[in-house]
Design a protein around this nucleic acid. Structure first.
Length: 423
RNA sequence: GGAGAGGUGGCCGAGUGGUCGAAGGCGCACGCCUGGAAAGCGUGUAUGCGCCGAAAGCGCAUCAUGGGUUCGAAUCCCAUUCUCUCCGCCA
């Protein structure tokens, strides 16, 4: 949620910046300014009324104590009137506040000035392209066929037991999953992250905190009986640790890593994009989250970008890094780098990580603050990124490393898998 | 799932319906004292919103959360939630 102060200070600037995200904010900003004005006006009236009522109550108390109870009658009458007035003002205030909030959450985060304009993924800026040549033999096949051939992932079995998009990993396929998780976690620890194992379900407050509600309501699995949401990413529990928290001066930066299963309904997805491991309802991911001083957040973003790239290097996967354009960047992000690996048999790029700086957008909604050098409370900046999401990594590993004899495991993973070939 | 006890500032902990944002202690910060430190002494030490752009000041709200009773609620009532104890069930 965008900070009200930023909008009030420079409504035109906000509208201008949001054009880069192809968002027309003009009417919305105007409404917000108006609602804010009404809110302050109402609160002033109510506070004054309450102040008078407080004074009256004290006077009545004194009268009663000194045995002049009869004299309190008139004051009581006035008090009753004030109560009615302040109560109805209170209702108006609450209505105005929630109307203001409803409008505020509709505004996307401001893009960083470096974000290129654009409408779709075509306009993303390719920053790094590490496309070392992959030579596949003539009978090279996509990963879903390899999965069947070597009996390492069973989509049909998953469909029988649960539904489409919930595969079983078997034998060396299961061990490869476990190896990747451990590899990613160990690398993150090495890079100074603290490991968490989060709950896989969160409550409503947490889903709001990171902005998944009300935005992506239909995209999360929801347990109605207990009103809990299955997490689409570990970002939600890990970031919400700091909801309504004021961090001490020395606690920044916070670097957390968590492995979790992720659950996504992916309503509306279909076609060849969702074939095999390309898009699942349940998948595994290692997520990194940082909370840092506002002045450091872009350095931190670069640090995270380099870190994620190093993982792909170690896995010897051809990848590229995209700086997302205004039209493709998410609602909550100021600046996002997408990482894509090349899937040789499908001949297409698959997104495996998205590293974003949210600046104070999440913190503002979550009330995540810290004490700065002057001991004042300020909103911290939050960042996160996948490091990495497993399924598409597995897809690329299988396809790119297939040979006549089997699938070769990259060196960095062999100590984790305990085997160097799937055959 | 059943029964009971409880939730007060960063922490501990007091609080009879009235001047309680809340005693006292610990912690922390600053100052005095000291050659330096400890001890001791003194001062300060919540958050949000509003008056107003900032500071100072003032006002309002906040004692788990949300309602209610009352001129007045940390205190009384109701609901929710979380923690603890016992019983039941259980990896």
């Amino acid at each position: 949620m965008l900070q009200l102060n930023i909008i009030k200070e420079n409504p035109k600037g906000v509208t201008e910046l949001l054009r880069i995200k192809n968002f027309d904010a003009e009417a919305l900003v105007e409404e917000i300014m108006e609602l804010d004005h009404r809110r302050r006006e109402t609160q002033k009236k109510m506070d004054d009324g309450l102040a008078e009522a407080n004074i009256l109550a004290k006077e009545i108390g004194i009268l009663f104590k000194s045995g002049k109870g009869e004299e309190a009658g008139a004051l009581k009458e006035r008090s009753a009137v004030l109560k009615k007035e302040t109560q109805s003002l209170g209702i108006i205030l609450e209505e105005t506040k929630s109307a203001l909030d409803e409008k505020l959450v509709l505004l996307p985060n401001l893009p960083h000035p470096s974000v290129p304009a654009g409408n779709s993924e075509e306009d993303n800026e390719v920053l790094v392209a590490n496309e070392f040549k992959i030579k596949l033999h003539d009978d090279a096949v996509p990963h879903w066929e390899l999965a069947k051939k070597y009996d390492i992932i069973d989509f049909d079995l998953g469909a029988k037991v649960t539904g489409a998009g919930f595969p079983f990993y078997k034998g060396k396929g299961a061990r490869l999953q476990r190896a990747l998780i451990n590899f990613f976690l160990d690398e993150a620890l090495e890079a100074g992250y603290s490991e968490y194992q989060p709950p896989l379900f969160v409550n409503e407050d947490s889903a709001y905190g990171t902005g998944n509600l009300p935005d992506k309501d239909g995209q999360m699995y929801h347990i109605g009986e207990d009103n809990l949401y299955a997490i689409p990413t570990a970002e939600i529990p890990i970031t919400n640790i700091y909801r309504d928290v004021i961090l001490g001066q020395d606690s920044l930066p916070i670097k957390n890593v968590a492995y979790s299963s992720c659950f996504r309904r992916e309503a509306g997805s279909y076609g060849k994009d969702v074939r095999g491991l390309n898009r699942l309802h349940q998948f595994d991911k290692v997520e990194i989250v940082q909370i840092c001083h506002p002045e450091r957040s872009y350095d931190t973003l670069e640090e995270m970008r380099i870190y994620v790239a190093s993982l792909l290097e170690k896995l010897e996967l051809p990848y590229r890094i995209l700086k997302l354009c205004g039209g493709d960047i998410s609602f909550t992000s100021s600046l996002t780098y997408d990482f894509e690996v090349f899937s040789a048999a499908q001949k297409r790029w698959l997104e495996v990580s998205s590293v974003s700086n949210f600046e104070a957008f999440q913190s503002n909604r979550m009330k995540l603050r810290f004490r700065d050098e002057d001991n004042k409370t300020r909103l911290a900046h939050t960042l996160n990124g996948s490091a990495l999401a497993l399924p598409r990594i597995v897809a690329a590993l299988l396809e790119n490393n297939q040979s006549e004899t089997g699938i070769n495991i990259p060196k960095a993973l062999r100590t984790y898998t305990g085997f160097d070939l799937i055959s």
